[in-house]
Amino acid sequence: MDELITYGPELAQGFLENIKLALVGLVVSFILGTILVAMRVSPTPVLRAAGTAYVNVVRNTPLTLVLAFSALGLSDQLGLVFSDQPETNSFWLVGLGLGAYTAAFVCEALRAGINTVPMGQAEASRAIGLTFFQTLTMIILPQAFRAVIAPLGSVVIAMIKNTTVATAGGLLTDSAATMKIVFDTTGASIPIFLGVIAAFMVLILPIGYFTGWLSRKLAVVR
């Protein structure tokens, strides 16, 4: 227990870094994921193919490789630099890498949501003379959105957990890297491990319960 108190502030600092990364990842992945899903359901075959290719490649690549590549490849070799401060630079690289990776999963969740809306709904709305945008905004998206809450919740939870892989992108200030550095001096410490995972659970469990509750409450009864 003493170890957790001694190293508590450092670990808390690291955990804050995880939260900040998760926020960047959240914004980036939702924006990029929405663009991707728009491409994947568009009537243009080229855009569909490009979206599908992105999703399939990214989804099947390990996050460790994505992050290591964005640090060593994109930044060091190809000169993509966000800040002169190395730590700020790594932070944005990891945040954007995480967002680009998660976007593929956001896209898949959204697409699955659209697919849950039965064909009959769209056909019926066209039959009563609604335009494309009316169909989209009044019939399909409201139903798709509800179906998508729980899967999106899972994606967000997975992304929060994935912020621990930041080490691979050269960001050595997050809670996982801090824990490893502390373990180098203390050896494996059970209180420290339990403390860090408790912090993650406090963040993750409410999201799981909330999205689960919301999706049940809003579920479309068919």
Partner: peptide, 21 residues
């Protein structure tokens, strides 16, 4: 001087070839 984190010296050399070091 500003320090830039790397996992190993070979990574440092890769970085030196680029623009971050």
């Amino acid at each position: 001087a500003t320090t830039v984190d790397a996992a190993s010296y070979s990574e440092c050399v890769q970085k030196l070839g680029g623009s971050n070091l």
